[in-house]
Write a protein that binds this DNA or RNA. Structure first.
Length: 673
DNA sequence: GTTCATAGGAAGCAGCGGGG
DNA sequence: CCCCGCTGCTTCCTATGAAC
């Protein structure tokens, strides 16, 4: 064990000098100065960074083993990190006996008969080449004292063998023996195979352990496999459920709230920006305006360079450590991240679309006020950790089925995944959690991939290719982030709203009529995969892009999803939007221009009207460049009718769309920029 | 055996009401 | 006032069962 190894990576990371906020800025807990033991005042000050800000000096607020940090453990003894150990076996029952021990354990404290318990399995991600994970081992093991059952013997031998310093070795041996003795005479807290499951959140009341979440069945091989993995390290944390007064104090003293005051001052400086409804519209030259640039230099959350799996694993480990640090301090752990849904957290940037403003209030999910949401995020975080470590992908739906009683509905999983994406400041795809693919492509395009992730196996690291032709449609490729080269002979890209229209175009040999192009459909509202692919295509090939959507409010909304993104995914707009997208059709004015028969018109229903009204309030429609877009929508509203692409035939010509409409629109330039 | 209707799932959006 | 949970709406696809 390296006595000088860093054990608590709190805020500053290796890339702290980057202008982008690191994940540590939004990790669940700020630095706990009391936890640092011998950390002097200056270092403490440097470590007191608040979420949402980037430390000017990337001071690494860390705890060194050499600092001889001393923290009272759950038995009331002064312990150093080197006292910690790994349990050998997770044999367990689901019984807790809080009164057995004589020493004051938080579990046995008479006024703490109600609290929750996590179990957490940490497994070093990059075994051989990874940096020493002693930090994790220590921190996690520290939580064990007093909670371990007699059946869980500390395994200190391997660590003692590695102790370079004789004194430390002796001290550790002595303390370990002491600890072992204490653990044997103290509380029993065992919970079957759940021991090896992170995010098994339990509620302890009146000395009984009651599962808040579904425990995996005994025949769940996953848990056993996880433990038998050899390099698994068990962690067990506990937290008392604080009463409201505790929460009040926590709230008043939290750095996050202090920060919120400062942020509101920052926000004040945005009053000069144009506001439309709830969405602030950034001026196009905002970067050149000193006041704005000073307060909004970070309008996006994610780094332009995707994080590697290793970085993400370290980030998650950091979050877990901070959670544990909060628990050690008997504070309520929480996740805190920049709001992604709240309207006032969203700005509209004409160059990108909807974006999340970093300097804004934060969303806080704490275990006291939002226990369910916290547990769901914790569980999903566990799954993502495993996906990253095992280099696997999964779908939201698969995640949902991992713990249906806990999640309750698919929506809670969806929400948690997006929250975690914000928390870790990465796109959802980087979490190895993907939605079912539905985007289709047809046209000449060759895509080369090269994994950027150093965790990928060598064989996977070889270049792969995706080849699309005009002969057949294909599902869009996955691993958008790994695309290195896109080559095409196409002159433009046509994005189609519906799959039916997509196939209709192909059946009508659309390439013979409008030339060499790439046709893509997201099949209704586009999924992230499709939007991401379209964004990369625009970025790498620089081709003009046209959207062909229904002449109805939803068609326009889908168009806007491609062009400016959505508020819900504003945090990832930089990777999803195509602001240069052109509205090719079907324009409301096309109904007259192409003499579309009245039989093909459909009257607005109540929902269409409401949707259109909502769209007319969209911030981008106030941009001078889009006044023609607004006029088209107002025309649609005035007429109160809609028209679908499938019904688009004039004079009984079933190939009207492919043979006449599209060629005319493209050649005459009758589209909206 | 074919056709049609329905339910559920996946993607998206917005709004409302209760509770702290 | 804000957060959270729920509801309701769109798109399309797939699976299932009833009707012909």
């Amino acid at each position: 064990m390296n006595a000088n190894s860093t054990i608590v990576p709190l805020y500053a990371r290796a890339d702290a000098g980057s202008k982008h906020n690191s994940v540590a800025d939004v990790a669940p807990r700020p630095c706990h100065e009391d936890y640092d033991g011998g950390m002097d005042a200056d270092r403490r000050e440097a470590s007191e960074t608040v979420p949402g800000t980037n430390p000017a000096a990337p001071e690494r607020a860390t705890l060194q083993l050499g600092d001889e940090a001393v923290v009272p453990d759950s038995l009331g003894r002064q312990k150093t990190p080197s006292d910690l150990y790994v349990p050998e076996s997770p044999q367990a029952t689901t019984r807790i006996e809080p009164d057995r021990g004589a020493a004051p354990s938080p579990l046995s404290s008479p006024d703490s008969d109600s609290f929750a318990v996590f179990c957490f399995s940490l497994q070093p991600a990059a075994n051989a080449e990874a940096a020493p994970r002693d930090d994790l081992d220590h921190s996690v093991r520290y939580i064990h004292p007093g909670l371990l059952a007699p059946g869980l013997q500390p395994d200190v031998s391997s660590q003692l063998d590695e102790q370079p310093d004789a004194e430390q070795s002796d001290a550790a041996q002595s303390d370990a023996a002491d600890l072992e003795s204490k653990s044997q005479e103290h509380t029993t807290l065992l919970c079957e195979d759940d021991w090896v499951q992170m995010s098994s959140v339990h509620h302890v009341s009146d000395g009984r352990l009651q599962s808040l979440c579904k425990s995996d069945d005994d025949d769940d091989d996953q848990s056993n496999e996880s433990y038998d993995d050899g390099d698994a390290q068990l962690g067990l944390c506990y937290i008392r459920l604080h009463d409201s007064s505790d929460m009040g104090d926590l709230s008043q003293n939290s750095a996050a709230d202090d920060n919120a005051v400062e942020l509101s001052q920052d926000q004040q400086q945005f009053d000069d920006c144009e506001n439309f409804g709830d969405t602030t519209i950034l001026p196009e030259d905002y970067a050149d305006q000193e006041d704005l640039a000073a307060t909004a230099p970070e309008v996006h959350i994610f780094s332009s360079v995707p994080k590697t799996s290793r970085q993400l694993l370290q980030d998650i480990e950091g979050i877990v450590l901070n959670t544990i640090a909060a628990i050690v301090e008997e504070e309520v752990p929480y996740f805190e991240f920049h709001s992604r849904v709240r309207q006032q957290g969203i700005v509209f940037d004409p160059q990108v679309g909807f974006r999340v403003l970093l300097h804004n209030k934060l969303t806080k999910v704490d275990m006291f006020n939002s226990p369910r949401r916290f547990a769901v995020m914790w569980k999903v975080l566990e799954c993502i950790f495993e996906l990253l470590r095992r280099k696997l992908n999964t779908t939201k739906r698969d995640l949902f089925y991992l713990d249906v009683p806990l999640f309750g509905s698919q929506k809670s999983v969806d929400c948690a995944i997006d929250d975690i994406a914000c928390l870790l400041q990465v796109s959802r795809a980087q979490l190895h959690c993907i939605a079912s693919f539905k985007g289709l492509i047809c046209g000449n395009l060759e895509v080369s991939f090269e994994p950027l992730d150093e965790l990928e196996d060598q064989e996977d690291g070889e270049q792969r290719a995706f080849l699309s032709t005009q002969l057949e449609s294909k599902l869009l490729p996955r691993d958008i982030d790994d695309i290195t080269v896109m080559q095409t002979t196409a002159e433009f890209v046509l994005i189609v709203e519906k799959e039916a229209v997509f196939h209709r175009l192909l059946n009508d040999r659309v390439f013979d009529h409008i030339g060499d192009c790439i046709v893509i459909t997201g099949i209704g509202y586009p999924d992230i995969q499709t939007r991401s692919f379209v964004h990369r295509l625009a970025e790498m090939c620089g081709l003009p892009m046209y959207a062909l959507v229904d002449c109805d409010p939803h068609g326009f909304d889908i168009l806007c999803n491609y062009k400016y993104g959505s508020r819900a995914l504003a945090f990832d707009s930089e990777n999803l939007t195509v602001p240069s997208l052109r509205w090719l059709g079907l324009l409301p004015s096309d109904i007259d221009k192409f003499n579309i028969q009245e039989a093909n018109w459909l009257a607005f229903n109540q929902y269409d009207t409401g949707k259109l009204t909502s769209l007319l309030n969209a911030p981008f429609l106030t941009l001078p460049d889009l006044h023609l877009w607004r006029e088209e929508l107002e025309l649609m509203q005035a007429r109160g009718i809609k028209c679908e692409l499938q019904a688009l035939n004039v004079d009984g010509d079933l190939t009207f769309l492919t043979g006449r409409f599209l060629p005319h629109k493209l050649q005459s330039g009758h589209f909206l920029l």
